[in-house]
Every structure is written in structure tokens, then in C-alpha cells.
Simulated scan of single mutants.
Amino acid sequence: MEVFFRDGDSLDYYAQLFGISLNLLRDSNSNIDFSQMKSGQPIQIPGFALEHHMLGINDQLYFLAAERNLSLDAIKLVNQDCHFAELMIGSNIYLPKRVNRAVVNRRRAYDYSALTEDIEALNALYPFIRINEIGKSVLGKSIYELRLGRGQKKVHMNASFHANEWITSSVLMELLNAFLLTMMNFQKMRHINTAELYELVDLSIVPMVNPDGVNLVINGLPEQNSRELIRMNDDNQDFSGWKANIRGVDLNNQFPANWEIEKERKIPQSPAFRDYPGEKALSEPEAIAMEKLAEDHPFSRVIAFHTQGEEFYWGYEGKEPVESFMLASEFERWSGYKSIQNVDSHAGFKDWFIQTFRKPGFTIELGRGINPLPLSQFPEIYRKVEGIFLAALYL
């Protein structure tokens, strides 16, 4: 919600007026020099929206404010052009409304367009979220990172490395929306104070690593390279089983952690709808973007969301720290998912992160069934993985 600064006001006053922390207000207006504030300058108030209201016969401004747990001055602030002495029945005013419902629309096939709509909606409502483009896909789609929080603990989460696992993107965005709602409405997630977590954690989220592949699975063939894509898909025009990026490379087999082993033993040995690790490690722009993101930021731990099995993997060749065992035990307890330390697999993002940084890395396999998992599984998946999301931030 946008308001306009008045002479005599201050950022501290607006924080008190709307019942939000000063840090959230500052982070929502990071482009402003607060020592040089002038009358009429726009200020973003996170977690609020403006609501049109026509005055009825029994309406009094004081009671309208009290119903929203706000002071009368909050209404005056958002109606600075209004002559309050002249208000009458039928007059139209704005009322500030604390948003208490999710804006992420996860009840749909979650393609790149759905993701970008939800990113825009979240950013408009919670302008303290920093939206970064960390790279572009093969077809030029932005790979977005959403970042929030002020803490020293740097936690990274990602989803949709694999195209037909797109439900992970909607789950991760729903988790983020729930985190924001509870933080702004003085509520808790599973007894965890999310407002405190904002001060303790620096959260990085890449909700869709493979946007071209996701679009292919959900929307079918793009205009370009359709014949080649059909060939890579075993001459099948049903792309629901497609895991790779648009060039037929499995992005979670792209990282320099014994990549040569995967290259030698993987079938197929050329671009395909799944499992091909590429001609070399980090050949694909999506994998390069993720590698650079982790290199540029000293993440404390990373969590990659995939699908199939209701289990998670957290070891790599004995290079995982002792902290990983503790986290794995808590993830298992909070979610009911099975903890598996080691699997016969290399070249994944989690593998490379553990090998390179000697910090905790996890691959979380959501749900059970045939990919893409149906949206009917969403509530059960969300219920279980919420524990992992919170434990990763809290512990």
C-alpha cells in the first residue's frame, strides 16, 4: 500500500501507526534517503492494501478505524485529498486493510506465467522482498531469486530443476506466502514466530530453475525446435514425462561433483527428455546461474525440492558436516519423510554444494506417484514439507 509522507511524520510513526516493525518498513523503502524526506513523497506500507468504502448511514470514521485495529489517523493518511468536514452518506473513501489471505494462486498448472504473476503479486504486497534475476534460460526466460530477511544464517531453497516436477514450484511459493502472512499478521507457523525469523535468517528462494522445461510439460511444444523436441522425446508429442531443460539436458546432472561418472554411465548418451548430463559439466545456462548464485553467496545450507518418494538425501561421499546429521534427524521428525544419507548418484546441485562448501545440502523428494504429481496431492505434500521448510530456517 502506498501512502504519501506528511510534514511532521516519521518512519517510526508510520511503523507504530500500522503495527509493523521499523526494519520491515525500512526494507520496503530501501530506495529512500530517510534523512531527506519531503512532504508528498510516496512510502510503501507492507502487508496492507487500500479498500474502497462508501460511507453508510451508521458509519463513523473512528469506528471504521477501530474495526481494523487502527487509529483514525491511519484513515486520514490514506485520504489526504479528502475534506473530512464535508463527508456525507454516499461519500467514497479509502480504508487501509491488513491483508490476511494468500495471493499465491497455486490451484493451477504452475507454469512460468503463473510464477511471474505470483512474484509480482507478492512483491506489490511485500515490497521488502528483493527480486533478482540470476540468469536466463535457454529460451531467454528470467530465472528469479526471491530474497528476504536480515539474518546471518543464509538459507537457500529451490524448485523445479526437473520440468515435470513443477508442483515443487507452487509448493515453495505457497510456503513463502504462508511465511509472509503469519509474519505480517502476528501469527505463527507451527508455533514458530516467523517475525523473529525475519531478523535471524537471510532467505534465498529460486522457485523455478527450469522454466523452459516446465512450460514444455504444461503447455506443450513451443514454436521453435518442435521437431527436435519430439525426436528427443522418443517421437512422442506427450511431454508430461519431460525432466530436462529445453536442450534435452538434465539440469540436476550438470554439476562438477564426479560429473564424469554420470556422463559415462548414464543412458542416453545424447540429448533426451531425461537423464542426459550434457557434453560437459555446467554447459547449460540454468545450471551456470545456480552455480554462480551459490559461489557468490555464502549459504549456510541449501534445500532442493524434487518429487517422488517422501524421503530426502543429505550426504555426499562423507563430505557433509556433522550439522547435516542433526538437521536430517529434525527434518525427519518434523515431516515424517524418510532420511537417507547416501545414494549412488553424482553431479547434482546438492552433491556439488556439499563437496564445494562442506555445508549441509538436502534433496527433498515430495509426494508419491507418477510425475507430474496431481494437484490433488498438494494439501498433503504441503502439510508434510512445511515442517522441513520451518526447520531449515529455525534450527
Results as ranks from 00 to 15, higher is better:
residue 1 M to H: 12
residue 12 D to W: 12
residue 13 Y to Q: 08
residue 16 Q to K: 11
residue 22 L to C: 05
residue 24 L to F: 06
residue 29 N to Y: 06
residue 30 S to W: 01
residue 31 N to R: 13
residue 32 I to H: 03
residue 33 D to V: 01
residue 34 F to S: 14
residue 36 Q to E: 12
residue 37 M to F: 04
residue 40 G to P: 04
residue 46 P to Q: 00
residue 48 F to M: 02
residue 49 A to K: 11
residue 51 E to D: 01
residue 59 D to W: 00
residue 62 Y to N: 08
residue 66 A to I: 05
residue 71 S to L: 05
residue 77 L to P: 08
residue 78 V to T: 05
residue 81 D to F: 10
residue 82 C to M: 13
residue 85 A to C: 07
residue 85 A to Q: 14
residue 85 A to R: 15
residue 89 I to N: 05
residue 95 L to N: 01
residue 103 V to S: 13
residue 104 V to F: 08
residue 110 Y to N: 02
residue 115 L to M: 08
residue 120 E to Q: 14
residue 123 N to W: 11
residue 125 L to H: 12
residue 130 R to G: 07
residue 131 I to H: 06
residue 135 G to S: 08
residue 143 I to Y: 03
residue 149 G to F: 10
residue 150 R to W: 05
residue 152 Q to E: 15
residue 155 V to Y: 03
residue 155 V to T: 11
residue 155 V to M: 03
residue 157 M to P: 09
residue 159 A to N: 07
residue 169 S to P: 02
residue 171 V to P: 02
residue 171 V to Q: 02
residue 175 L to Q: 13
residue 179 F to H: 14
residue 184 M to S: 13
residue 188 K to Y: 12
residue 190 R to I: 09
residue 192 I to F: 13
residue 195 A to W: 02
residue 197 L to A: 12
residue 197 L to K: 12
residue 197 L to M: 14
residue 199 E to S: 14
residue 201 V to P: 06
residue 207 P to I: 05
residue 211 P to C: 01
residue 211 P to F: 01
residue 215 N to R: 07
residue 216 L to P: 01
residue 217 V to W: 03
residue 219 N to M: 13
residue 222 P to Q: 04
residue 223 E to L: 14
residue 226 S to R: 15
residue 230 I to D: 07
residue 240 S to P: 05
residue 242 W to I: 03
residue 242 W to R: 09
residue 243 K to C: 07
residue 246 I to L: 09
residue 247 R to V: 15
residue 249 V to R: 08
residue 254 Q to L: 09
residue 256 P to S: 09
residue 260 E to T: 09
residue 262 E to N: 11
residue 272 A to Q: 10
residue 273 F to C: 11
residue 277 P to M: 11
residue 278 G to A: 10
residue 280 K to E: 15
residue 285 P to Y: 02
residue 286 E to A: 04
residue 286 E to W: 03
residue 292 K to W: 03
residue 292 K to I: 11
residue 300 S to A: 11
residue 300 S to K: 09
residue 303 I to R: 02
residue 305 F to C: 06
residue 305 F to Y: 15
residue 310 E to S: 15
residue 312 F to T: 03
residue 313 Y to C: 00
residue 313 Y to G: 00
residue 320 E to H: 07
residue 321 P to H: 10
residue 324 S to D: 02
residue 328 A to I: 12
residue 330 E to I: 15
residue 335 S to G: 04
residue 335 S to D: 04
residue 336 G to E: 01
residue 336 G to I: 06
residue 337 Y to P: 00
residue 342 N to A: 10
residue 342 N to S: 13
residue 346 H to K: 13
residue 346 H to P: 07
residue 351 D to L: 13
residue 360 P to N: 00
residue 361 G to D: 04
residue 361 G to V: 03
residue 362 F to G: 02
residue 368 R to Y: 10
residue 372 P to A: 05
residue 372 P to V: 01
residue 375 L to C: 03
residue 387 G to R: 10
residue 389 F to Y: 03
